[in-house]
Design a protein around this nucleic acid. Sequence first.
DNA 1: AAGTGTGAACAAGTTCACAGCC
DNA 2: GGCTGTGAACTTGTTCACACTT
Lengths: 210, 210
Amino acid sequence: MPLEIPEVVIDRLPTYYRLLTNLQARGVAVVSSQELGEALNVTPAQIRKDLSYFGRFGKQGRGYSVQRLTDELRTILGLDQRWRMVLIGVGRLGTAIASYRGFEPQGFDIVGVYDVNPEAVGTELGGELVVRNVADLARDLADDPVDIGIVAVPAGEAQAVVDVLVAAGIGAILSYAPTAAQVPAGVEVRQIDPVLSLQGMTYHLRRRDA
Amino acid sequence: MPLEIPEVVIDRLPTYYRLLTNLQARGVAVVSSQELGEALNVTPAQIRKDLSYFGRFGKQGRGYSVQRLTDELRTILGLDQRWRMVLIGVGRLGTAIASYRGFEPQGFDIVGVYDVNPEAVGTELGGELVVRNVADLARDLADDPVDIGIVAVPAGEAQAVVDVLVAAGIGAILSYAPTAAQVPAGVEVRQIDPVLSLQGMTYHLRRRDA
DNA sequence: AAGTGTGAACAAGTTCACAGCC
DNA sequence: GGCTGTGAACTTGTTCACACTT
């Protein structure tokens, strides 16, 4: 697996992986690129090409072993280990993120939560984590690095938080803040913003009826 | 504004729009593609090209009027009207979505909430909306159509909910369910899934240190 | 017979570079 | 002088189509 892998390909792999784990849970042993494509609304050729960047995982005339392909993708994506995350911001949104049950089963653990609000600091969240002061974030990360930062603070405070995370050497940031963060090359950032998604759809809605 | 506009262009417009509303709030009157690009991590040429699909909004030698460009984008994206949404699923996630304060100021209103769970049906959510039975969804939509459906049910129930929405003639679906929905052409679907975002980043994290 | 893996053809999207205008 | 708008050049990504393997 040499060369430069296109970023779009990487972004599709998690959806392949998720479908494959479902198939595996349902006891499916073998699957073709045709079948995968139908379930994911992607052309079979796309799936074969994407996978071919990483190796030759299929068998001609048969398809892909679900077990084998799941394992390969898990390794490729780095999902064969657990990842440690800190959450900054425990307002409405941050609290919801902290209590979200979908991270842990996929290998993502929130190991620290932070806020600026002195009233929030010291309280327990989800019966496990005590909210710490964001002023301690830099020191805490120096003592005990984590892999990923989740930013759930208001737009105006997001860049400051991102700067602390970056200074601490974090490699990836998942931002729920409605603002584009500035980070140096080599730091991954993904943004989650339902409003942007809605606004992309209203463009089409307007045209549908007109 | 004739022609086919590339989908990627549409997807960038909301981020332009959001930055422009910020600039406007801060009293900035004029902005160049250079400045916009720096704030959004996009090349100036990209911004100019994107905007050029819709018209000639800038002035050579000066840049873009923030007011003018904001207004143009609002119209293009269809944000000069309010949009009605129903939310299906009031578990942990659905409840968080219902109480999210970011939709309303942007023109998106949740006008109905639904669940299958008989215990949830009839309860009030956010002191305003009464949770209705998902069995009534089809009839309710026939009586009183909405523009957008938000799906926040478990993976296994998502397709059934999507089918009801589609049958009711809905034009757009925002899905928080961890599964790819099947919809006919002409129905817009966007998926929000933080785990997929994280899994795309771990690929890079793995390589960073190796 | 069926379905992968892949070079080659094609399509889509981005950046360049500069004419034109303010 | 500065910055837009835009064809043309380029780069990136997708699909085709078929040789090859089981």
